[in-house]
Amino acid sequence: MANSRFDLWVGLFVVVGVAALFFLAFQVSGAASARVTGETIQVVAYFDNIGGLKVKAPVKSAGVLVGRVTAIRLDPSTYRAEVTMAISRAVPFPKDTSAAILTAGLLGEQYVGLEAGAESEMLQDGDRIAVTQSAVVLEKLVGQFLVQRSAE
């Protein structure tokens, strides 16, 4: 009798503890929603300036999550940023799709926005996105604005 009481309470304790871990994993850290499910293809895009883009930043098209940034490095020959992305195989994008680095909200995190093109051929694993638009750097905008004002 005493033994089964221990079993009951220990069982309850373990269930509560594991439930707490699951809650932390899925509701708090969003491990499930953060992962792009299913098979992915790797595509590369070169940007003049990536601003504050980070690895694991979302890749979105029309605001819907379709992939994640997997690697960022500086191409030593062109001095442009090489951004590698894993995008879902379930949503094929045309070859002339363009990529832009956008900001969520005024000061939010930066993400890659894909704008689908019109070609019938689709992007394959290892392909390169040719048309890119760099991140808007606030300091540059302010600089341009000041130059314009002083020219007037």
Binding site: F13, V16, L24, V28
Partner: peptide
């Protein structure tokens, strides 16, 4: 570890 997880979960 289970106690710490419960603490964090209840705290959240």
């Amino acid at each position: 570890p289970l106690l710490a997880a419960v603490f964090s979960a209840v705290g959240v």
